[in-house]
């Protein structure tokens, strides 16, 4: 699984961190999402997919 974030689209909701805290974090200053691991292990895949689903800005892209 390969994960990318479009930081220009990100609205800093933090929903991705709620869904998958091992893979996503937010910048302290403006809350924009940052990727902790662009290639998460299989056991985190479901959480990462959920993060992409609940992102209100459609800013997370996944290549399986």
């Amino acid at each position: 699984m390969k994960v990318t974030i479009d930081q220009d689209r990100c609205v800093a909701s933090g929903q991705c961190v709620v869904a998958a805290a091992e893979v996503f974090d937010q910048r302290d200053e403006d809350g924009v999402a940052v990727l902790l691991n662009p290639d998460p292990p299989a056991e985190q895949a479901a959480d990462v997919r959920h993060a992409a689903v609940v992102c209100p800005a459609l800013a997370i892209h996944i290549e399986e």
């Binding site: 933090g14 709620v18 403006d30």
Partner: peptide, 11 residues
């Protein structure tokens, strides 16, 4: 208000 990460941490 302009503190997204800190807000989410209180969720």
């Amino acid at each position: 208000w302009n503190m997204p990460k800190q807000t989410r941490l209180r969720r």
